[in-house]
Design a binder for these strands. Structure first.
Lengths: 341, 341
DNA sequence: ATCCAATATGGAACCGATTTCATCGACAAG
DNA sequence: CTTGTCGATGAAATCGGTTCCATATTGGAT
């Protein structure tokens, strides 16, 4: 069941069949119709491997993520695929499980499959792996890491503005003792978010208490444990920011377990705004990072560079926005605090 | 950067390079070493497309799911990939978004990429699409649908035992008015789960009230709305089973919004046991459907049929198990009910 | 009527691997 | 010393498409 059989049935050459399939203009409507009939009759599906081999383009775009189990990523994957499909391209998903070794495996896969571009939405990226890809002139786009270079695009996230808004929100509710649960500190993205937090606290003129910063793992269990540690301290924060929503959701559980209430006893703010965050109890106030936007920009960045040899790597910036729900409230009235419930 | 250049550098033929890469025994240790050196030096990555074309095996296994946004599936994907990697195979993920049309696109992808097998973990499957694949002798495995035929395996889920356990659990807590929120009724899997529920209720000798069955969409918003409808009725159930955990989580929100409490006012049981269900507040009692087990069986079923032309399609059965958490409790004391809090 | 340009189509090389089959050399047996 | 056997290697066909280049055909201009 290959192109030759189709050609024979339609009484044309394989070249003409190929042209018909690819919508080349140089085929008579009549001939094209005959070919289409033959394809239909034989239930012919062109072999993607042969196609890629012959044409040099795989129509495949790689998407490397850290953890498919974190809802942030499936939502990103979905959006990325949606855009890719619009352009008639396919997506190859690879996840690293936050493991630098697996990252190498992922890159190898991309190289072997001859993808037309790679979106790297994770930060455990090794310099030499980047070289491996960029030296082969594969368009790349990073999420919030990486230096924009020739053929390499970068999507920066304006953490400062997002986290400033969160801190401002808490501050306006009377909170001064604000804690933070970070992601795993060996991840660049986690470090960047944490730095944005400390900077923001300083900018607001609040006191930065290192005792109120704990490390999580970007998953629920890590958030749970980190919050437990925070609650065990002598001086508790009245509000806590987290490095992502999963962490916040885990943290929320730890708070309830102590018989405390959100936001009455502790206000909580997440980061990402995954779909789930609208359904927690209470709804999670968070800083939204639009997956649709990231996915769209990422794909377009790759596609443009690929199709348009002239296009060079570009720099984009995403603005996160504060989404106020029910997990934040005025600091509880204590000793005549000025923000009674 | 192809096999020829490697051959030239190592001063051997391309055949020998190919043999070395594939670990064929007929290569002297010395020669193999020289080839490996050359590969290393040139940073050569064999072209998967050419490889698949030449050998007739793609080492790719397809995994078709309904909704990557439902945490059940990412967990399944992860497990499936883990097993595949152990066997040196790759995974091609495709999701249908519950849309039969997209399903056709997914199958086309599989056919074009010449996958070595397809795991169909979704039920919006058209008979003719199955034929399309099975007539090409592609090993298939279905999750809980499909008739086991030659080369087609099926993983059945013993809903009866899982849902019986759930109903028994509620019954022993004194519940008699048990509601159900189903998945979208155009999905086979949703219908099967609903039927398991009604059967179970009948077997327990409880009264089946069609008024207490509402339709959701297997997502949080659907669960939320369905529960809202249930709560608006004159006679409310004291306990509700849902078709999956996402539905239960959405439902929980609707309950809280009315100022009611779980499990005090309403007991809630989910289905799947996604990771999240241990972190809801209160923890969700649910019926666990092991993704690891499903993924492992699914991949092995495909791999065995592929590698072992003799192996025919097989039938497997998965036993779900009840996980008791905090979302179920005795029916609230009313008019001297016999199960006071 | 003649010639040219434009257009549709076919032939064949090519993409980069795998794999069959032939060959070569070495070593053991006679 | 010759011959048979076996193991390592290479040459070339092959997989199923794409695409360059050549050719045939058509219609319009002169």
């Amino acid at each position: 069941m290959n192109i030759k059989e189709v050609a024979r049935l339609a009484k044309v050459s394989t070249a003409t069949v190929s042209r018909t399939i690819n919508g080349s203009e140089k085929v008579t409507a009549e001939t094209a119709e005959r070919v289409r009939q033959a394809i239909e009759t034989l239930k012919f599906y062109p072999n993607t491997n042969a196609r890629a081999l012959g044409s040099g383009r795989s129509s495949l775009y790689g998407l490397i993520i850290s953890d498919i189990t974190n809802p942030f990523f499936p939502e990103l994957v979905k959006s990325f695929e949606d855009v890719a499909v619009q352009f008639g391209q396919e997506v190859l998903i690879a996840n690293t499980n936050y493991d630098p070794h697996r990252m190498e495996v992922c890159v190898t896969r991309m190289l072997q499959r001859k993808v037309d571009g790679v979106a790297i939405m994770t930060s455990e990226m090794d310099e030499h792996l980047i070289d491996e890809m960029s030296s082969r002139r594969i368009p790349l786009v990073f999420l919030d890491t990486g230096t924009p270079q020739k053929g390499i695009s970068n999507i920066a996230i304006d953490y400062a503005s997002g986290i400033d808004a969160a801190v401002e929100h808490l501050s306006s509710l009377g909170h001064t003792a604000i804690g933070f649960i970070s992601g795993p500190m060996d991840l660049t993205s986690a470090r960047v978010r944490r730095r944005a937090f400390t900077n923001s606290i300083k900018r607001k003129g609040l006191k930065l208490d290192r005792n109120m910063i704990e490390e999580g793992n970007h998953r629920m269990d890590g958030g749970h444990e980190a919050m437990a540690r925070l609650l065990d301290k002598e001086v508790r924060p009245t509000a806590v920011l987290t490095s992502n929503d999963m962490t916040a959701i885990g943290a929320m559980g730890a708070i309830f377990e102590r018989g405390l209430k959100v936001p009455h006893d502790i206000s909580l703010i997440g980061f990402d705004d995954i779909e789930l965050s609208a359904f927690t109890q209470p709804g999670l106030t968070t800083v939204r990072l639009s997956r649709q936007e990231i996915a769209k920009i990422a794909f377009r960045a790759l596609y443009d560079v690929k199709e348009n040899a002239s296009a060079k790597g570009a720099e984009f910036t995403i603005q996160p926005t504060l989404i106020e729900r029910k997990s934040t409230g005025p600091v509880a009235a204590r000793r005549g605090g000025k923000h009674p419930v």
